[in-house]
């Protein structure tokens, strides 16, 4: 299957410090969710910054739909079809849901296309349609995250990069957010997902990639990674919990 996003042998870091990513490679196939998991400081968010154009790699290549876009800025990456949803709540709180969503289409000129994308995201995220005129800052955390997803889909991206979408959300809202990630995938968008809640993320993803010390430790189908007991011990917070034994009455 053709890759929408391909990062090859990426070396990247901040300032003059030692690189965070040391020859990292990943492929995101069309219509799939690829999940990056790993311990704190492994370089997960750095991968997204490189892929989103916020950080220029020192070495390596970034390809979108086969085209080399290495070192391009965020606007160029958006135009190439890569949309980034930042960590935490990144809605513009003092602006309405409508304004937030329309800002996602800021690089687009065609009004008819923008209107079509608005209808599409309203359909995929009903809460966006319901709260269209409300201030985004007044929405709950889960709803804000959906506004961010809707905004990221406005440019009809090939790939959406999601940085810890469940951060700060309660379990119910987290569940809804992961459902929406699946809906994005089902709508035809490839997703590169970085998540601390590794087990939940791998359950949602098609493919998984374990990152440690700036390199890929292991990668493969997400279910296979979930089933690996050694991996569970090292990176997923221990083995999956056994179902509680029902006491005999």
């Amino acid at each position: 299957m053709a890759s929408e996003l391909e990062l090859t042998d990426i070396v990247a870091g901040y300032g003059r410090a030692a690189p965070v990513l040391r020859g990292f490679s990943v492929e995101v196939p069309a219509g799939k969710i690829v999940c990056l998991v790993g311990p704190n400081g492994a370089g997960k968010s750095t991968v997204l910054k490189v892929a989103g154009g916020l950080l220029k790699p020192r070495d390596g290549k970034v390809l979108v739909g086969g085209a080399d876009v290495t070192g391009r800025g965020p606007q160029a990456m958006l135009k190439a079809g890569v949309s980034l949803v930042l960590q935490g709540h990144s809605v513009f709180r003092e602006m309405t849901v409508e304004e937030n969503v329309l800002l996602g289409a800021y690089t687009m000129k065609d009004k008819a296309k923008i209107a079509q994308r608005v209808s599409f995201v309203k359909e995929v995220f009903p809460v966006v349609a319901d709260r269209w005129g409300s201030l985004a800052g007044l929405l709950s955390g889960g709803q804000q995250k959906q506004v961010e997803f809707a905004r990221s889909l406005m440019v009809d991206p090939k790939v959406v990069l999601l940085d810890e979408p469940s951060m700060g959300l309660d379990p119910k809202a987290t569940g809804t957010v992961f459902e929406q990630v699946v809906r994005m995938r089902d709508a035809g968008t490839a997703v590169l997902l970085v998540e601390q809640n590794a087990r939940r993320a791998l359950e949602t993803a098609d493919l998984g990639c374990v990152l440690d010390l700036g390199r890929v430790h292991i990668s493969g189908p997400a279910q296979q990674l979930l089933a690996d007991p050694q991996l569970g011990e090292l990176y997923l917070g221990g083995r999956p919990a056994e179902p509680p034994v029902q006491p005999k009455i």
Binding site: G52, L54, L86, F92, M95, E99, L103, G104, Y106, T107
Partner: peptide, 22 residues
């Protein structure tokens, strides 16, 4: 649309840039 871009700068300039606002 120009005003929308300006207001996004007021709210968060880095986010606005990441969304393609010049």
């Amino acid at each position: 649309r120009f005003g929308l871009g300006l207001k996004s700068i007021r709210e968060d300039e880095d986010k606005a840039e990441a969304l393609g606002t010049a």
